[in-house]
Simulated scan of single mutants.
Amino acid sequence: MATGLDRQQGRFAGHVFRDPGLLQQALTHRSAGAPHNERLEFLGDAILGALIAEVLFTRWPAADEGTLTRARAELVRESSLAAVARELDLGARLVLGPGEMKSGGHRRDSILSDALEAVIAAVYLDSDLDTCRATVLPLFDRAIAALATGRIAKDAKTRLQEWLQARQRPLPVYELLSEGGEEHAKVFLVRCVLADVSIAAEGEGTSRRAAEQQAAEAVLGMLDASR
């Protein structure tokens, strides 16, 4: 995928900004000071979710709600967005504070995915929804084509819950063990516990949900090994 991103010229994926300052702000992390991209990230998250939902609804007319929901979640999760951002070489164009630059923030999934969402919002604010759709969706064409309807894997927490319910066993308990790191780079440590069989596993992630998913995946692996 061609990068299609030029901060100096105010261009992103074929869209030339009327207000290049919007693109500059979208690429500025909070560690570099204001104006930064957090508010744009909030808007971009909502816009991208709607655009992905729309394209899946249109392209997959036979898919049920559950399949569509899981497909959307797969496409907009942090690691998926970070992969798109890397293809665009977004990291090299980020404006970071000294601490984030030193710690390699331009390579971090959370920062890359947030920046991509912020740029999407910037395109929308600089133009309109139709232009934003035409600019953004081609970036996800390959990922969408790689998903097959009916084969979208359920997330680990859902799979673990269904496995336990099918055997009429108690649901897992998720315990937050720790929450550390700076405000913009939190790290969560969570334990997933199956009390009836004394099985537990830990997971770590940049959000509590991500940590819970990792812990649930580990518990599923333990259950598989014990069979």
Rank of each mutant, 00 (worst) to 15 (best):
D114I: 00
P138H: 07
D19N: 15
R169Q: 15
I47P: 00
A2K: 08
L137Q: 05
A115C: 07
H184S: 06
A166Q: 15
Q161K: 15
A145S: 13
L5T: 06
V123F: 04
I52Y: 01
A201G: 11
A225T: 11
G205D: 02
R108M: 09
L51G: 08
A2Y: 02
V119H: 03
A211E: 11
R59E: 14
L68E: 09
V136A: 02
R208D: 11
K154D: 13
E202H: 01
F57I: 00
A32P: 11
D224Q: 15
G221M: 10
L56N: 06
R59Y: 06
G97H: 05
R39E: 13
L171E: 09
A82L: 05
L137F: 03
A115I: 08
S207P: 05
I52A: 03
V84M: 05
L23K: 12
W60F: 07
R39M: 10
G91W: 06
Q214G: 02
G44L: 03
E87F: 00
A118D: 11
V55D: 13
Q9F: 01
K186S: 11
R93P: 00
T3W: 04
L48T: 08
L177V: 14
S110K: 10
R30L: 03
L189K: 15
E202W: 01
T206L: 09
V136S: 03
L139Y: 02
I144R: 06
E54Y: 11
I111V: 15
A92M: 01
P138T: 04
E162M: 07
L22M: 14
T131C: 14
R7N: 03
T69G: 00
S127T: 15
V84H: 08
D45S: 12
E179V: 08
R30F: 09
S80W: 02
K154R: 15
A185K: 12
L48S: 09
S127G: 07
E179N: 10
A218C: 11
A50P: 00
K186M: 13
A46H: 12
R133S: 05
A145I: 00
L75H: 01
E217W: 04
S178K: 04
A13R: 09
R167T: 07
A185V: 08
K157L: 11
T3E: 09
I47F: 02
V173N: 02
W60T: 08
A210R: 08
G221C: 08
A63L: 03
A148V: 15
A145L: 12
H184Q: 12
R133G: 00
D19Y: 01
K186D: 00
I144S: 10
R39H: 10
D128W: 10
H36V: 05
E54F: 10
G21L: 05
R191Q: 15
A166M: 07
E74H: 14
Y124G: 02
R142G: 09
H29Y: 10
L23Y: 07
H15E: 03
L68S: 09
T3C: 02
G104N: 12
